[in-house]
Structures are given as C-alpha cells and as structure tokens.
C-alpha cells in the first residue's frame, strides 16, 4: 500500500505525464521528500522556505491541509493527496 498523489496538468512534466503517482511517508513533509526522490524538482514547486507555497493547494482526502496541520499533517496508507494550483489573480 502507498499514498496516491494526484498531480495537476502543469506539474506532469515532473511525472512523465502521469496524473497520479505513489509515494510514502508518515507526514506530508516526508511524503513530499519521497516524491522529490522519485520525481526530482517537484518539491520546489510545492514548498518554499516558509512552508507550503501560497498558491498551491494540497488536500488530504477531502480537506485542505492548511486546515489540518500543514506540512506536519500525518498521512497514512490508503490516503489520497491532491495537488491543485490555486486559481487566483487580480487587477494589479
């Protein structure tokens, strides 16, 4: 068993076009570390020095991890993690 990570179109160049990949870890941070080992470059698109990037949404199952525990959120086998770039902009 592993954790399924769903990858948005714009990041599939890191996953050879795959819409979903598997990774392991006990927390979201470990999971992203494992993702980076399998798909180098992906971590930088998800996190920066301050934590999760502001305009990337990461969900554990049906919840936004910002409302759970951010990078420290525990994850376990059978969970699904979904990454979606935020849709945002403005007049300036």
């Amino acid at each position: 068993m592993a954790i399924e990570v769903r990858i948005p179109t714009i990041l599939r160049n890191y996953t050879d076009g795959a819409k979903a990949v598997n990774a392991t870890g006990a927390t979201l941070e470990e999971l992203i570390g494992d993702l980076e080992a399998r798909h180098p470059g992906l971590r930088d698109r998800l996190v920066d020095a301050a934590g999760l990037r502001r305009f990337v949404n990461v969900y554990l199952n049906d919840e936004d991890v910002r409302f759970l525990g951010g990078l420290g959120t525990p994850v376990s086998d059978g969970d699904t993690v979904t990454v979606l770039p935020a849709v945002a902009g403005g007049a300036r």
């Binding site: 949404n57 969900y59 936004d64 979904t82 849709v87 945002a88 403005g90």
Partner: peptide, 10 residues
C-alpha cells in the same frame, strides 16, 4: 483580487 475557494475548487 480573486481566488477560488480551495474546497469548492477541489
């Protein structure tokens, strides 16, 4: 400014 609500977007 606009931003989709994250849960609605999911």
């Amino acid at each position: 400014f606009y931003r989709f609500d994250s849960l609605e977007q999911l």
